[in-house]
Each structure stands twice: as C-alpha cells, then as structure tokens.
C-alpha cells in the first residue's frame, strides 16, 4: 500500500468519513473511493463506473468483499457505529467503556450537570443539554444506537420521542415491565403507532439475570450487538422463553 493513500485514508477516518480501498490482487494497484461531500477516486488503480458503484454499495452494506467475477478486493472503512446514552447514571459509567471497546463512538447526554461531569465520564463526549435538543443536534442515523437510562419520564420521554423520529437501528429504554407499559401508554397518547413503539427495547438488554450496573451494561451491549448482527430469526431463538 502506498503511504500517500494510507495517509489519505487515515485523514478520512479521523474526519469520520466513509471510504473503500479497492485492491487489484494481481498487480497490487489500489484506489481509494470516497463518498459524502467529495465523491472521488484516488490512486493508481483505474476503476470504471460499475466498480465505483460496487465500492459505494459495499460501504452502504458495511461489508468488505471480493468484486464479483474479478480479482479485486473492496475493503470498507466506515466510521465507527455510534451509541448515544441518555442519562449520565451509574450504569452509563459502566456501559461507556464496554461500548467503546466494542468499537462504538459513545456520547452521553444529560442536562443535569452534577451527573454529566467530566470527572464521572473522563473518556467520552458529554452533552449537558435536554435530550430532545441534544438528539436532534446529534442526528442519529441507521448506524446509531440510542439507550435511555434516566428512569425519569421528563428526560427519557423526549429522548424516545426524538429517537423514534430517527432511523436509529436500536432504541432501548431502562425500566421494569411496569415502567415500560406506562411509558408506551404515554407515547401512544402522544400519537405514536404500534410499529413505532415496537422499536423500543424495554426492559432494556438481554435477559441474563443482570443485577449490578456493570452486568446490566453487559446485557445492554449484548442486545445492541444482537440487533446489529443476528438475523431476526436467530435473535428470536436466543430469547430465554424460546429455549427448550
């Protein structure tokens, strides 16, 4: 790999912009395909329109692969998946490093400055604003997971409202079954449809009997991974009630 291409790729990664590196496995020549504001191709390997489209499609599917019927490999470099945690609570303190280790870019939102302090969250981006405003500014996309942990409807509900308006691939809300029922009633009264409400995972996390904040964080991250990676049938089969 040429160093100038590597440096360009590293700059794109730092700017959180998606890219794909196409390598001809015979000649070793490479081209870097960028999407977003600048949709261009750099490097010594010439790509035709179909090949650029294949690279863009691989970026969209987040899947590195050999080009069909050719000896060219498309390596996708997408920016990290994002996790937005609403509620700078104890569980959030445990969830932040776990999710970061799994490759997520984590943001914690809480307007209560006593909770959202740099001392409590030294390694993460903190947003001390109301969740609905913060979420609108953060613009969750289909590579974003959102988890509400405050237990307080004044904070969780506006967050869920904004989350449901986004294409986030995962929305989870902490709270017991009873809390979840009441929450869904309130959101229904606000006009959300059953299909919207079905997007909210609550009680949040896989049922692994988690008790401590760290264990609950494990169960939440496990559920996010399951939703992202497992086909729906497999996810259903792993629910405890479906086990023999």
């Amino acid at each position: 790999m040429q160093r100038d291409l590597l440096d360009r790729l590293l700059r794109l990664q730092a700017a959180k912009r998606p890219a794909a590196l196409v390598t001809d496995l015979e000649s070793g020549r490479q081209a870097l395909v960028e999407v977003g504001e600048v949709g261009d191709v750099t490097g010594p390997l010439a790509l035709d329109e179909t090949e650029v489209a294949a690279a863009v499609s691989a970026i969209h599917d987040d899947r590195s692969m050999l080009e069909a019927d050719s000896n060219r490999f498309i390596r996708v470099f997408n920016p990290p998946m994002r996790l937005i945690v609403v509620g700078a609570v104890h569980i959030a303190q445990q969830l932040v490093p776990l999710a970061a280790a799994a490759g997520y870019d984590v943001t914690v939102v809480d307007p209560r400055r006593a909770w959202a302090s740099g001392e409590r969250f030294p390694t993460v981006v903190l947003v001390a604003e109301w969740p609905d405003e913060a979420l609108r500014a953060l613009a969750p996309d289909r590579r974003t997971a959102i988890v509400t942990l405050t237990h307080d409807p004044k904070l969780d509900d506006p967050a869920l409202d904004a989350a449901l308006a986004s294409p986030a691939f995962y929305i989870g809300a902490l709270g017991s079954r009873r809390t979840q029922e009441r929450r869904l009633e309130r959101l229904r009264a606000q006009g959300f449809e059953a299909a919207d409400l079905a997007r909210i995972h609550g009680p949040v996390g896989l049922d692994i009997g988690a008790k401590s904040p760290a264990e609950i964080a494990v169960s939440i991250l496990a559920e996010i991974v399951q939703v992202r990676r497992a086909p729906p049938a497999a996810a259903e089969a792993s629910q405890p009630e479906a086990r023999p």
Partner: peptide, 19 residues
C-alpha cells in the same frame, strides 16, 4: 455542547494508524 475528549479507539483495532 461541552468539549470533552473523544472516546479513544481501542489500540487493537487501530491497525492502519499503528502501521
């Protein structure tokens, strides 16, 4: 928004930057 340090990438995943 508050300015806070970005979550650091896991060193094990930082293959190209390390290279």
């Amino acid at each position: 928004m508050n300015e806070s340090p970005e979550a650091k990438a896991t060193p094990a995943d930082d293959v190209l930057a390390t290279a």
